[in-house]
């Protein structure tokens, strides 16, 4: 009976179905020299071997489930999102510019005064404004210096428009012109050429169209902002600049200042070392 004990246990090992055992240890009755032991279909299964193996399989399947996230087909679909690059177009950009000579719906700039700040019919020949040096040193003063610029807002100015103008001014203009319009914004303090103060006589008398034109097309060192600010917001900013100018005048007259300062104080940072490098 000693050999009976060993045989079922050997059969429990699934991978050893062709184990050769030496004849001396086996029973002496086998006439064939090759003693083959077939696997038993009913090995003595231990009560916990099966669950543990299942758990192991479950773990593997579970890990495989998480590798599913390695496939990014749905995450990165072959379509264009804003600012996504592409290999389809030669310039690598997926965003395309409108075809030359076409106008997108709702972008027809039919109202010339509204979109340019210039009068539809020029009132004078090219004046001093074209050659005037910026930053408030124009020889001609007031409306005469900007004869082609519109003098009245082409849209009704309400409180909401001025409020909107304040917001937009503080986003786009205050960096250089300062929160109060003195021309001492943070970028100027960092070394940019000193921006114009709105509280000078020449700019107080300048028509609103001049401000609009300056925002739209740039003026001197100031870059054009047409791409960043829509036309209606540009007019709102102009309205707020007018409000700033009025408020500045009021405080000065209330304080009993007889003469307006043409140059606001503290201009020592106006011409720093790197300020003169004007590439454009």
């Amino acid at each position: 009976m000693a050999d009976q004990k060993s045989k079922p246990r050997r059969g429990a090992r699934d991978d050893r179905d062709d184990a050769d055992i030496s004849p001396s240890s086996g029973p002496p009755v086998s006439p064939s020299p090759r003693l083959r032991i077939s696997p038993s279909p009913h090995p003595p299964v231990s009560p916990w071997a099966l669950p543990r193996r299942n758990v192991f399989l479950l773990l593997i399947v579970h890990c495989l489930l998480f590798t599913v996230t390695c496939r990014q087909d749905m995450q990165d679909q072959p379509r264009m999102k804003p600012f996504r690059s592409t290999t389809f177009f030669r310039d690598g950009m997926s965003s395309r510019a409108p075809v030359t000579g076409t106008v997108p719906r709702g972008h027809l700039k039919a109202d010339g005064e509204f979109f340019t700040g210039k009068k539809d019919t020029p009132t004078s020949a090219p004046a001093a404004a074209q050659t005037a040096t910026p930053a408030g040193a124009a020889p001609a003063q007031g409306i005469a210096a900007y004869p082609d610029d519109v003098e009245e807002f082409p849209l009704p100015i309400t409180y909401d428009v001025v409020k909107r103008g304040k917001e937009r001014y503080e986003i786009f203009c205050s960096a250089c012109h300062g929160m109060t319009g003195n021309g001492d914004g943070m970028i100027v303090r960092r070394g940019f050429r000193r921006a114009a103060s709105f509280h000078t006589d020449s700019l107080r008398q300048a028509p609103v169209g001049h401000y609009f034109d300056a925002i739209t097309n740039g003026w001197g060192a100031m870059p054009p902002y047409a791409a960043q600010i829509p036309a209606r917001d540009r007019w709102a900013i102009v309205a707020y600049i007018r409000a700033l100018q009025l408020s500045h005048q009021n405080t000065q007259s209330q304080a009993g200042q007889p003469q307006l300062q043409t140059q606001p104080p503290a201009s020592q940072t106006a011409t720093p070392s790197s300020g003169g490098h004007n590439e454009r």
Binding site: D3, Q4, P27, S30, S32, I37, S38, P39, S40, H42
Partner: peptide, 18 residues
């Protein structure tokens, strides 16, 4: 009883069901 079952034809040791 002490001898494992073997095939009557090929004389190999077999177990139940095989």
């Amino acid at each position: 009883s002490g001898v494992p079952p073997e095939c009557v034809v090929c004389r190999e040791i077999v177990f139940v069901g095989t």
